[in-house]
Amino acid sequence: MSEEIKARISPFHWLRQRVFLFRHPWIDIVEYVALIALIIWLMSMSTARLGYYWQWFRVPKYLFQIKDGRLIVGKLIQGLFFTFRISGVSLLLAFTVGLTTALVRLSGSFMGRILSRVYLETIRNTPLIVQIYLMYFVIGPILGLGRFGSAVLALTLFEGAYLSEIFRAGITSLHKGQWEAAHSLGLSGFYTYRDVILPQAIRRILPPLTGQVITLIKNSALVSIVSLSDLALNAKIIAADTFLTFEIWFTAAAIYLVITVALSTLAYYLEKRFKILT
């Protein structure tokens, strides 16, 4: 290498190369742990100033308890099961509503397109909490739906609106040659969607779909406003009864986190497993 080129090399070049070598994953992990420790320390400082008396040992019985050799499910976990139930039912219905809305929106029907648009915009532009009240106090009684039914309906319509936009984006992202090939083979609209379009579209929209499923589970906490004993409401009741405010809410948050992180991980593997070669 000529002297001229050597002179032009940045004086930090050598250093940067060495520092890069030091970026072992362990360094990231240590940094992360240090950050968490710092946050915990700050929190304990501030709760100390509040005079808060931590009593973590009182929390486990609200999760699980073993009495006389039998496992008893605590109130928080009962709430979690209810959250699973309402989220699961709403999710299935919301998928149906979302997909139907997307298909109607993409169909040739003029009125169908307008109706699905009106549905989407109404739901998307009003708060979920207002919709839950409206379903519970007005629509539910009209339709003869109980507490659970009204809440499911509210969640279904709300998430269905967002899901429909995700489905629509996935479907329209496919090359029009896919439709033309299916058309040329004489496939009906039903089989074109079922065998050609949706299998490809769903793989593409798996990431935003996962996001929406997670949002649904988190939003299901709002049904506690109509006194459905989900995880959030049970946490609130326990916290009020015991004054374990911090411990219980942190525990509830951690449970939600575990569920949603598990879902994200599952989606990540599904994405890899069903990846289409391109």
Binding site: H175, G177, Q178, E180, A181, S184, Q200, L277
Partner: peptide, 17 residues
């Protein structure tokens, strides 16, 4: 007619999945 007429495209349009 779609059943009786086969078509081959410039960009193949095979179903990738």
């Amino acid at each position: 007619i779609r059943k009786e007429v086969g078509m081959v495209f410039q960009s193949f349009n095979l179903f990738p999945h």
